[in-house]
Computed example of a mutant assay.
Amino acid sequence: MRIAITTAPVHLDKTSTVCTHPAPGTKPCPGTSGYRASCSACTWRRTGRTQISLADVASTHLATHLTAPVPS
């Protein structure tokens, strides 16, 4: 099974729903407040102001799914 971390823009609402509008911020989209990263293998997810702020956290989480070292 391939495990991936996906990142998507989220709306300004209380529950930070994922924005599926063609261009975030265009009408009727209320705008986005940040990004949500989620794991395809478990229920892990985090929300951050920028994609870059989530990169290290996502990388660290992805490493928790490794069962053996990658051969060099």
Rank of each mutant, 00 (worst) to 15 (best):
C29N: 05
A23F: 15
T20Q: 15
T15W: 08
M1A: 13
L12E: 12
T32V: 02
D13A: 01
T17G: 00
A37G: 14
H21Y: 15
S40H: 06
T17I: 08
T50M: 08
I5Q: 00
R36N: 01
A63G: 09
A8K: 08
T17R: 14
R49W: 07
T26A: 12
T17F: 11
C19Q: 03
G25N: 12
H21S: 13
S33K: 14
G25I: 12
P28Y: 08
S53C: 08
H61L: 07
M1G: 15
V10G: 02
C42D: 13
A8Q: 09
A41S: 11
T60N: 06
Y35H: 15
M1P: 05
H61M: 10
T67P: 00
S59Y: 03
H65T: 00
G34W: 03
H11Y: 12
G31S: 09
A4H: 08
T6F: 14
S40M: 02
Q51S: 06
C29W: 15
R45L: 04
S38D: 00
G31N: 06
G31V: 04
A68H: 11
G25F: 11
T64G: 02
T43N: 07
A58F: 01
T60I: 15
A68I: 04
P69S: 11
P22W: 08
T6Y: 13
A68W: 02
T60Q: 08
G48V: 00
P28C: 03
L12H: 09
H65N: 06
T6I: 07
A58V: 00
P30A: 12
C29K: 03
A4R: 13
A37L: 05
K14V: 09
R49H: 04
A68E: 12
D13H: 07
T60D: 08
T47I: 15
C42Y: 00
T6M: 01
A63Q: 12
I52H: 11
R2P: 15
A37Y: 00
T6C: 02
D56Y: 14
G48N: 01
K14W: 03
T26I: 10
W44M: 00
A41I: 14
T17Y: 13
P22A: 12
K14N: 10
T26E: 12
S40I: 09
G25K: 05
T43L: 08
L54F: 08
C19D: 02
Y35D: 01
L62I: 14
L12D: 09
S40V: 06
L62C: 01
I3P: 04
P28A: 13
V10S: 02
T6G: 09
S40K: 04
T15N: 14
R45A: 11
G31E: 14
T17H: 14
P22D: 10
C39I: 00
A68S: 11
H65K: 07
H11R: 12
C39S: 05
R46N: 10
S59N: 10
C19L: 04
P24H: 01
G25W: 04
K14F: 05
R2Q: 12
S38W: 02
T26N: 14
C39Y: 00
I3N: 12
I52P: 06
G48D: 00
I5Y: 10
A23M: 10
A63N: 10
A37E: 00
L62D: 01
D13R: 04
S53P: 01
T64F: 04
T64C: 01
A63S: 13
T6Q: 06
S59H: 11
M1L: 06
G31K: 14
